[in-house]
């Protein structure tokens, strides 16, 4: 009988597996040893030709060889996988400076964004947000606001009139919403009314015939000047997220008495005086004041449930456009209505 050296066979197979550099090589070895007609199958097929006494031992050796080859192949595959992983992790074909895929996006108009902040801040202080018509009755825009027929601000050069009789105007301010609020609400109440207003002005970088205001009105019992300053200071401090110095000085608006101009400390120079604040350290923020008794009388006219003589209130109105221009450094107010995407998509 032929002598078979199983140890040598196993050593040879192990060496070849260890030398194999890829799956292809391993598969070839696997086929050679383990497939039908392979080395191990040949050995097993020779068993019947052996002496009966040799068969058992030979069979065990052949199976041992088979298991050893299988184990060596598994190890070889694991080593190859580990090598591939190491190579993949070590690869330096990654360019960290490549840009990301461009995300198409939309945008909200900057006036909307700031208007929302304003609405939310006042809402959190218990204010109801009201809306009013842009084409407004003269009564609401002027008469009820203690702006009699001969008041200079009614000159045609300021106001857009919608008819010869001057009963309809493009509202010149958000203040008419004060009267509309009084007509349908019962004190005490707090409202703001943001919206579009119109003045007959020639346009340039800082002037628009169409702009945006936010009106505020608080009516109740015992409302004082100090409440007004507290409210606006509190609002500005939250809006700008910093302590904002404020001051009141005399100002004339027919629908308030006393009337004030409300200034805030210039954010650009910290109050030292600069080009933006024209050296004063202060920036005009809004006109405001204690609601004029005649305005309360007009707004609550015919209301049996409201004792006007017992009421006081304050009102304010500030421009939204200027606030937005200040925040973003927009230098031309006409951009707001211009609709140029190169402007809009920046917000």
């Amino acid at each position: 009988m032929t002598q078979v050296d199983f140890d040598d066979l196993q050593r040879t197979a192990a060496e070849r597996i260890a030398r194999a550099s890829d799956e292809e090589g391993l598969r070839a070895i696997e086929r050679e040893y383990l497939d039908k007609g392979g080395v191990i199958a040949g050995l097993l097929a020779s068993i019947p030709t052996l002496e009966p006494t040799e068969r058992r031992e030979f069979g065990q050796s052949a199976n041992g060889l088979k298991q050893a080859v299988q184990a060596a192949l598994a190890d070889g595959r694991a080593a190859l996988a580990a090598g591939r992983l190491a190579a993949e992790l070590a690869a330096d074909d990654f360019d960290p400076t490549l840009p990301g895929a461009r995300l198409e996006r939309g945008s909200l108009h900057p006036l909307t964004q700031v208007r929302r902040e304003v609405e939310d801040l006042f809402s959190s202080m218990g204010y109801q947000v009201l809306d009013g018509p842009e084409v407004e009755l003269d009564y609401y825009n002027f008469q009820a606001l203690n702006i009699p027929v001969d008041h200079p601000s009614r000159e045609e050069q300021d106001t857009f009139y919608c008819d010869r009789e001057h009963t309809l105007v493009m509202r010149t301010q958000t203040s008419p919403v004060q009267i509309r609020a009084m007509e349908r609400m019962t004190p005490p109440f707090r409202v703001i009314a943001p919206g579009r207003v119109f003045r007959n002005e020639q346009q340039d970088a800082t002037h628009e015939h169409t702009f945006h205001q936010v009106e505020g009105l608080v009516v109740g019992h015992g409302v004082q000047v100090g409440h007004l300053t507290w409210t606006l200071k509190n609002f500005l401090t939250q809006l700008f997220d910093r302590e904002v110095p404020v001051r009141l000085r005399p100002g004339f608006f027919p629908f308030v008495e006393p009337g004030f101009e409300f200034d805030m400390g210039c954010a650009f120079c910290g109050g030292k005086g600069c080009r933006v604040c024209k050296g004063s350290g202060w920036i005009e923020f809004c006109g405001c004041g204690m609601v004029h008794p005649r305005v309360l009388e007009a707004g609550f006219a015919g209301r049996d449930d409201v004792d006007v003589s017992a009421l006081t209130g304050f009102a304010f109105g500030f421009g939204l456009d200027r606030l937005v221009m200040t925040r973003y450094g927009v230098d031309d107010i006409r951009q707001f209505m211009g609709g140029d995407l190169r402007f809009l998509e920046q917000f």
Binding site: P188, F189, R190, V218, G226, T229, T231, F260
Partner: peptide
């Protein structure tokens, strides 16, 4: 007007 102190607005609203 700077002599007028700010006053927290509290009201039943």
């Amino acid at each position: 007007y700077d002599a007028i102190p700010g006053a927290k607005l509290v009201a039943e609203v």
